[in-house]
Design a protein around this nucleic acid. Structure first.
Lengths: 361, 361
DNA sequence: GTGAAAGCGCTAACAA
DNA sequence: TTGTTAGCGCTTTCAC
């Protein structure tokens, strides 16, 4: 009696549908099937059709792991971000994902939460999956990452600043453009005293924005005293505190610019708590143009820095390690938080704002 | 003269650091290295230490592809969402990602944008990467997905509703709880006329929320006429149109509940455009508790449905195909868009609101 | 243009 | 307990 070899009598025959099965079904060799699947042009059209038919009929799907193993190409791109709760990142991640898929890759996402250990784990995961490149979108240099990945020769891309290595590229964001537009917009409206709420000291992007603001202000002849610059931390609370400070100085600004939108949102709350109206009493401009800004009331005037643009540039940079990535532009989006300064503020008297600001409701 | 075989004189020796290298370096077999890496308990502590040292010293990182290929386990979990721009999803994705990593998996994200072709591509990608499970978080049943994945016997999890198959589980969201709390909250405040802006007709979650609202209203003895229900589409615009409609009826509601937060945000804009104040003239409650709601002014009272909870439940369900996933709870988060109805509205007269609503600014 | 065969790096029998 | 070895499913020389 022959041993019955039928794997399963049930409908779930799970007949190990691999490239060989297809080859047999199509009456060709596995090599041919492989060539067809990879669209190698030198395959005879007849055979090719037979193979596709077999693939279709059997519902064959190639195994990416095996492919990656033998070819040495994982078709995986890593992207590392810092803070999940930062509303700037979803768009960036989505853009990265989309772009990666466009070029036949998959995205591996890691978030560090500013935690070095989580960062290490991220890097480990990326290494294990054999990523072909890693975009470090944390807006800060993270040394531990560099050592491991860089030494493997894996292409990397950073924002704004990174050590000089030949497998590392940098996406430069043109902060000046958008910020200059914003300052000019404010100046055109008649503002002469502009406050600025900046981000964390050691965040390059925050410093770059502050510098851009300072030089833009200078260009339009606006003096920015120390007291008009508040060092926040890119959180909503930081924005609130910034407003409290700026409203407390001798000559409060008639307009405030924030280093990011989340700060600006906090600033909005603080301004409204102070009984002042936006933009009637004070104008406000954010930075990032996160989704939130459109929904908020009044919709926030802000400087757009497209997460999708950055993501696209990053994917491009990873796949073309030699070439310099495209610079990312920023631009002013005028919504409804900017307007002419109140008349009182325009008077030359030093105590320009009435001691008890008129409550708005 | 012997052929010089040294691969590279440069520092980038790239000496093919695989499990064999480690085995040799540690003076053991590859099997032992494999066992150590996989924490098989029966390995001698001495050898284990030697192996770890070698791993450390060489900087060895196992190749996931090879692992997956031979073991048949990809350690990949797919998650499919619909609309990127829906602010509810980032939290869900982040939660899924985190949870997956917690249990030693990686997340593969796909977004369909309501496009069937993109959906197909998603499924194809997941199949090719040999995902061990797929969470379909689109809040709708998508037939095409089912056919392919389900027939492969891949565990799947849906929200609210799905075909009965043994590899498919369903996460039930307890809409009633949060919605009942909201209605009771409104009733306690004194509201007797509550408007409701619902979502797309064929979205199960929207219908379930509407039903929950209707029965909750009935429980507290509030009658909800047809005219108080506006069929929106879960967009901001839908919310605006809903408000316009609800304010136009003979007896406008003093409170409005929305099927999701984005609608509620649109509603806020429309209400403010109408010259009415929240919550003085009208109360508003959203659904989802997306990040946005805290930042908005005034902060939105809403019903929390945790994307993280759903994600956690989904990951659990995928890894335990037999067992029923945990139900996800919802609950009211009271912020500042709900208050007592205006006195005028409390009068028994049918034309309760003055014909020209007092403008707020 | 097509096929046979040699692995990619690893795990899992099986043997020792 | 440890080592040897046969593949996992695929791509890719290398002959034909």
């Amino acid at each position: 009696m022959a041993i019955r070899k039928r794997a399963a009598t049930a409908k779930k025959s799970k007949a190990k549908l691999d490239i060989r099965t297809v080859a047999t079904a199509a009456g060709v060799s596995v090599a041919t099937v492989s060539r067809v699947m990879n669209k190698v042009p030198t395959v005879d059209a007849q055979l090719s059709k037979k193979v596709w038919e077999a693939v279709q009929r059997l519902g064959y799907v190639p195994n990416t792991q095996a492919r990656a193993l033998v070819s040495g190409r994982s078709r995986l791109l890593g992207v590392i971000i810092s803070d999940i709760t930062n509303p700037f990142f979803p768009e960036l991640i989505q853009g990265f994902e989309d772009k990666a898929i466009d070029v036949g890759y998959e995205a591996l996402i890691g978030s560090t939460n500013y935690d070095l250990q989580r960062m290490e784990q991220c890097v480990q995961r990326m290494l294990e999956r054999q990523v072909e490149g890693v975009a470090v979108m944390t807006f800060g240099i993270e040394q531990p990452i560099l050592e491991r990945l860089s030494s493997e020769g894996i292409p990397m891309v950073f924002i704004d600043v990174a050590p000089r290595k030949k497998n590392i590229s940098i996406i430069h964001v043109n902060y000046d453009q958008g910020i200059r537009e914003a300052v000019q917009h404010l100046a055109a409206l008649g503002h002469r005293r502009i406050g600025y709420i900046t981000g964390p000291h050691l965040l390059h992007s925050a410093n770059a924005r502050l510098d851009a603001f300072l030089s833009a202000a200078e260009r339009v002849g606006i003096r920015v005293p120390e007291s008009c610059i508040f060092h926040g931390d890119h959180t909503s609370e930081g924005g609130s505190r910034g407003v409290e400070h700026l409203l407390s100085i001798k000559q409060p600004p008639t307009a405030i610019m924030c280093s990011n939108d989340v700060s600006a949102l906090g600033a909005m709350h603080a301004i409204s708590r102070a009984g002042l109206s936006i933009p009637d009493d004070i104008s406000l401009i954010g930075f990032d143009d996160i989704k939130l800004t459109e929904y908020v009331l009044p919709p926030l005037t802000t400087i757009r820095m497209s997460g999708r643009d950055i993501a696209a540039s990053a994917v491009y940079a990873l796949l073309n390690p030699g070439t310099a990535p495209k610079q990312v532009e920023t631009s002013l989006i005028v919504r409804q938080t900017t307007g002419v300064p109140p008349k009182a503020a325009l008077a030359k008297t030093s105590s320009s704002r009435s001691s008890s600001p008129k409550r708005h409701r």
